[in-house]
Design a protein around this nucleic acid. Structure first.
Length: 977
RNA sequence: GCCCCGAUAGGCGAAUUGGCAUAGCCGAUGGAUUCAAAAUCCGUUGUUUGUGGGUUCGAGUCCCACUCGGGGUACCA
């Protein structure tokens, strides 16, 4: 807003040594240069190229990380650095506490924007991306972040993506052995495929299709093994997005069936694509969440995404099927989480795509009600018509909830294994082919969806859980005793839901009609993209069309030059289009002669590229050892920074530590995508023995967003927020106008389209980096979103100016502090502040830490001269938050070196206890008097003292005293009779 | 619909285990400084903690119901 946010003038008539934006800029740039020259923030490793055993000795390692930024060409706004400043403050604080802190920042630089820009301009995406990285590095350096610049990596660097490809290769060369006993005692781990091959060859394992290894030829054996790899080619329906010209992972498709990026329609199409077997890790990904110090919201999103549900698979015998050895011998398997309601099944439903529909009876059974037939003459016709209808609907339409249930009878019946009753089988699109078995047992008495369907087709309802008195709804999904649930062999009546589930499960297993089953919502990760600007797969195909990994010593597979960076894109709704990746155009690259062990042969390269998530799945590991040319990361180095440590376990009592990054700060938007993928890769690397930590990120913290007011004019167009004038009306309401015309205030994210962007560069120029850092950190708790208010930034600047004046004369630059000792009161305040600030910084409560520092400074301001004894701790405590001005004051106070590694002040416990405290005297919880009492006063003495208070007696107004609650020395509460 | 988070002065926020309701910043306002203004400095100003109930000697804090705002998610059987 223009009226009140004029920054301090850079200028002429200000005293020469005033802490203005200009002076701040000078000393900030100087200190940034010095930190860089001296390598102040370079963290030593225990071994390897940056090994320094001496520097490492006696210092606890601490690994702090920000989420990998994409170097956008649009530039930063003031919201972007919020998390970077927070991690920097914390890292600087921990460094002063004596820890060996690793903090750096790299760039997740593959991605769509640079590619799209390349398509428009013909400029190679590497050129634009590298230019963007340079710009962003400059902008961030100006913030004064204490990063170890040597460790900054970029995913587009061939020396980096060499290892991304190497990990993919490891996944390709592995399978998941669910029986393998891990070191931690758990079952299931990634193992080399050689073990699988050996197990087949020895007969210890039989091919799943019933054949034998011996009778298979070479190609068949390879196909068999390939089908088990953690990275495998699949030909199943995938999310094809014609508008983007690429396929997408489930996680990249929104609930209404559109691409998260670009909002284009997405359709399911069967296509040959690379998949990663993340589902093998579903259980560990869910279970290990409990061992992580993560926000509950993120954990619950991951749990939900994985969607583990336990239940039973139950077999019903089909009656009327025209296939199978004989009618009635075909089975229909369903998955249910409520096997306890089995006695309440009154019909069955299969998804329209279900295989049982290929063999429906030739004619409607006797007495089929007209509405069930959909008006068709035969079941085959009804089913066929319904299938066409269902196929024509998009997923979004099918799952639109308000829609009335549709479906048709199939002519089939199925026999309930516990009641022996045959119930009709319907097909309806509310049952999804992709979940469970694609078929359900319908229990309208206990399931809302089944009830809605039953109402529509007038199907009977049997209650098997007794609803409470007065229950009037349809389906009852709550807890209650089982009813109507017994036969000669099993009796559930009277049992609660849990007990009933157990008993029926045991019964089903005994009779062979069912077995316990766990299903997951999580699907395998679709890993191919038809893009240019991504990592090429380290894969070639031989004459059989089967994939082979490029040997590790031949990595990286470099991204070839192509004439055109664009994949072929299509009309967004052209569902018949096929993907055409740009790499396919580099024909000389695609056809390659390699020696993979049996002499030079012709191969064809994979022309898809990896998705954007690949590079960010493991970057934390490369920060540790970025120059290692032999290994992804040296095991010693990984164990030092990320290995499990009993004293850092995040889970409940007794939970083993997972290891991982000590603090990972970023936005909640990566809750499922990046954070799930990275955990999966890390666990696979753990299984294969490449890392000692089980999880990549031990502690996760989601910072809030910086939001900003935006304004629209009478026509609804956004006007530049910086030029809006605020006034207060006669009634006290806030009013806003632009060029004299009233405008309406909105609230939202900062962005070009809302015309409310404020950049860090503007802030450096107007206030300096330290003021900007301080303001960002003082706006509120880090995990909360907060509104940006440029005019309030001046508050932080005034604080630094007051501090500066307490130390330095604005005219002469001379020190103005006194060497005299501080008074007892000031000394006590310094120690109380130290105590509070340490706790606040450690707990990421930067806003309250700053408030305490301001308070101390305000006290010092009132003195004729601030004592060195108070000023020095204040400067040191400020250092993590406003490092440049702190360094400068520290220098002027007569210290030669940087304070970055200087010990953080420690509070003397003896000075924290106060001699006297104010005791509150209450009547019935209301404060009636205050007494100054010795801190060590006894309960009895305090009671007596309080009862003698005239103010208390006045408040009691002659009433007697019933009880006196004494909490010495701070409170006495009198309860009148 | 379900799940999670939030609601404290004009705005942003603070308040260990239930124990003095507000630390700090902005704004507003009076003054100093100034030829005047900006900047700077000094002072003043604030509510009954979204609503209703409950537990308690005592509730911003715990419990129940509701309202509003934000986020996640959905025929997942």
């Amino acid at each position: 807003m223009s009226t009140t946010d004029q920054p301090a003038p850079a200028t002429s008539d200000a005293p020469p040594q005033r802490y203005t934006a200009q002076l701040a800029a000078e000393l900030e740039l100087a200190w940034q240069q010095r930190w860089a020259d001296e390598g102040t923030f370079e963290a030593p490793n225990p071994s390897g190229p940056w090994g320094d055993a001496e520097a490492v000795a006696g210092r606890e390692p601490l690994f702090v990380m920000d989420m990998f930024p994409y170097p956008s060409g649009a530039g930063l706004h003031v919201g972007h650095p919020l998390g970077y400043i927070a991690t920097d403050v914390w890292a600087r604080y921990q460094r002063m506490c004596g820890r060996n802190v690793l903090h750096t920042l790299g760039y997740d630089a593959f991605g769509l924007p640079a590619e799209q820009y390349a398509v428009q301009t013909g400029q190679h995406p590497r050129v634009t991306t590298e230019a963007n990285i340079t710009t962003m590095r400059r902008q961030l350096r100006r913030l004064g972040l204490g990063h170890d610049a040597r460790r900054s990596v970029s995913t587009i660097d061939p020396e980096y993506y060499r290892w991304t490809q190497w990990i993919f290769r490891e996944l390709f060369e592995s399978w998941y052995d669910p029986e393998h006993v891990r070191a931690d005692g758990g079952r299931g781990a990634a193992r080399p495929v050689a073990e699988l091959r050996a197990a087949y060859a020895s007969g210890a394992r039989r091919p799943e299709d019933g054949s034998t290894w011996a009778e298979l030829d070479d190609v068949a054996r390879r196909r068999l093994v390939d089908a088990h790899r953690l990275a495998y080619v699949s030909d199943t329906p995938v999310n094809w997005c014609p508008g983007l010209g690429t396929v997408l992972a489930n996680e990249e498709v929104t609930a209404d069936g559109r691409s998260e990026r670009g909002n284009f329609p997405v359709v399911k199409r069967p296509l040959k694509q690379w998949m990663l077997r993340i589902t093998a890790y579903a259980d560990r990904l869910v279970d290990d969440l409990e061992r992580l110090d993560w926000p509950e919201a993120v954990k619950s999103m991951q749990r939900h995404w994985i969607g583990r549900s336990t239940g039973a698979q139950v077999r019903f015998a089909l009656v009327g099927s025209t296939v199978g050895p004989a009618a009635g011998e075909q089975d229909l398997e369903v998955f249910t989480t409520r096997p306890d309601t089995l006695f309440g099944v009154t019909f069955m439903v299969v998804a329209p795509e279900h295989a049982s529909l290929d063999a429906v009876p030739a004619a409607w059974p006797e007495g089929t009600p007209e509405p069930w037939t959909g008006g068709a003459a035969t079941p085959a016709e009804a089913v066929a018509a319904y299938r066409v209808q269902a196929a024509a609907r998009t997923d979004a339409e099918r799952t639109d909830e308000g829609r009335t249930k549709t479906g048709v009878f199939t002519g089939l019946h199925a026999t309930n294994p516990v009641t022996g009753t045959a119930v009709p089988v319907f097909t309806a699109d509310y049952v999804l082919i992709g979940y469970g078995t694609g078929a359900i047992m319908a229990v309208p008495g206990q399931d809302e969806r089944d009830f809605a369907f039953a109402e529509r087709f007038e199907l009977p309802v049997i209650r098997t859980v007794q609803p409470p008195e007065g229950f009037e709804g349809g389906a009852f999904t709550g807890e209650g005793p089982a009813v109507n649930s017994s036969n000669d062999d099993v009796d559930l009546d009277g049992l609660d839901v849990v007990a009933a589930k157990e008993r029926i499960a045991a019964h089903l297993e005994r009779t062979g009609a069912g077995r316990p089953v766990t299903t997951y919502r999580l699907r395998d990760w679709l890993f191919s993209r038809q893009r240019y600007w991504g990592e090429p797969f380290p894969v070639v195909y031989d004459e059989h069309g089967l994939p082979l990994a490029v040997p590790a010593d031949q990595l990286p597979v470099l991204l070839p030059e192509v004439p055109d960076y664009s994949p072929r894109t299509f009309e967004p709704d052209d569902v018949t289009s096929d993907p055409e990746p740009p790499l396919a155009r580099a024909q000389e690259w695609v056809h390659v002669t390699l020696d993979l062990g049996d002499g030079p042969k012709q191969y064809r390269r994979e022309t898809n590229t990896m998705p954007n998530w690949a590079g960010s799945c493991w970057y934390e590991l490369r920060y540790l050892d970025p120059q290692n040319t032999e290994l992804l990361v040296d095991p010693d180095v990984e164990r030092y920074w990320m290995g499990p440590r009993a004293d850092r376990a995040a889970g409940g009592p007794g939970a083993a530590d997972t290891g991982g990054v000590d603090l990972y700060v970023g936005g909640v938007e990566h809750a499922v995508l990046h954070l799930l993928y990275a955990r999966f890769w890390h666990k696979a690397l753990f299984d294969l023995g490449h890392v000692s930590s089980e999880e990549p990120f031990r502690r996760l913290f989601n910072q809030g967003y910086v939001q900003a007011d935006a304004f629209t004019d009478g026509r609804g167009f956004h006007v530049p927020a910086a030029e809006v004038v605020e006034t207060t009306s006669a009634s006290g309401a806030r009013e806003f106008s632009f060029e004299g015309e009233p405008v309406t205030r909105e609230y939202g994210k900062m962005g070009k389209s809302l015309k409310n962007v404020v950049t860090p560069d503007e802030m450096y120029e107007a206030y300096g980096a330290d003021t900007f850092r301080l303001y960002e950190m003082s706006m509120g708790p880090l995990d909360q979103s907060r509104p940006w208010e440029t005019r309030a930034v001046v508050g932080s600047q005034r604080f630094l100016q007051r501090l500066w004046r307490n130390v330095v004369d604005e005219m002469t630059g001379q020190l103005v502090i006194t060497e005299e000792p501080a008074t007892a009161a000031v000394r006590a305040l310094v120690h109380r502040t130290t105590d509070g600030v340490s706790a606040d910084l450690a707990a990421l409560r930067f806003n309250t830490a700053i408030a305490k520092l301001i308070e101390l400074n305000n006290e010092l301001t009132k003195l004729p001269a601030a004592p060195r004894e108070a000023v020095e701790p204040l400067v040191l405590m400020l250092a993590p938050l406003a490092p440049h001005v702190a360094e400068e004051l520290w220098r002027r106070l007569g210290h030669a070196g940087s304070l970055a590694h200087h010990p953080f002040p420690q509070a003397d416990p003896a000075l924290l206890v106060q001699e006297t405290v104010t005791c509150v005297v209450q009547v019935q919880g209301k404060v009636r008097d205050r007494l100054e009492v010795p801190a060590d006063i006894t309960e009895d003495a305090l009671r007596e003292l309080a009862l003698a208070s005239p103010a208390l007696q006045r408040a009691l107004d002659g009433r007697g005293v019933r009880t006196v609650v004494v909490r010495a020395p701070k409170l006495v509460n009198v309860v009148p009779a």
